[in-house]
């Protein structure tokens, strides 16, 4: 029972790896497919594809990211069999040393592969990185190119009102 509750098991990831490497998969049982892979394969077969040579594309997943994802899942599968105590500290160290680009990739991987723990962990870390920063610093860190008060969308008067009201909204 314990094993079934892990959101995304290690063996499933191996399976994704196999898919990525386009290894034949007919020998593997369907029951271990995660929802998302299952859906993708179903749509692949429904559109007349060959079951033996299905490839599932996972956007933004480089080998380096995947290695990290596997590291995460493996650790969590291990620790869920023992105690939950260890994982909090391990999670902190795991996510703490990651640079921004990789962090965003991990977040997306968690999101796309529906690995909730990883998704939450990366989201918290990204959120934490935003605290106490000026808007300009946040734009630089996360490579965001835009200004809400740009004159294109808001009339100068509207922009002025926004600038006046905005501090009040955060009293």
């Amino acid at each position: 029972m314990e094993k079934q509750q892990t959101p995304f098991g290690f063996h499933k990831l191996i399976f994704i790896l196999l898919i990525l490497l386009s290894v034949s998969m007919s020998a593997l049982g369907r029951d271990i497919l995660s929802d998302i892979i299952e859906l993708k394969i179903e749509s692949h077969i429904a559109s007349g594809g060959n079951f033996d040579s299905v490839t599932v594309e996972l956007p933004n997943l480089t080998g380096k990211t995947l290695a990290k994802v596997i590291e995460y899942c493996k650790k969590h599968e291990e620790s869920s069999e023992k105690t939950g105590e260890l994982s909090e500290k391990w999670d902190g160290e795991f996510i703490g040393g990651v640079e921004v680009g990789m962090l965003m990739d991990l977040f997306l991987a968690g999101y796309e592969l529906k690995i909730k723990g990883l998704n939450d962990l990366a989201a918290s870390r990204i959120g934490g990185m935003m605290l106490g920063k000026t808007p300009e610093e946040i734009r630089v860190i996360f490579d965001i190119k835009e200004d809400p008060l740009c004159k294109k969308s808001k009339s100068p008067k509207e922009g002025e009102r926004f600038a006046r009201d905005n501090p009040w909204a955060f009293q």
């Binding site: 935003m130 920063k133 000026t134 808007p135 946040i138 734009r139 965001i144 835009e146 200004d147 809400p148 008060l149 969308s153 905005n166 501090p167 909204a169 955060f170």
Partner: peptide, 8 residues
């Protein structure tokens, strides 16, 4: 407050 000024 700071986040709201990052982008639209």
């Amino acid at each position: 407050e700071s986040l709201s000024l990052v982008s639209k």
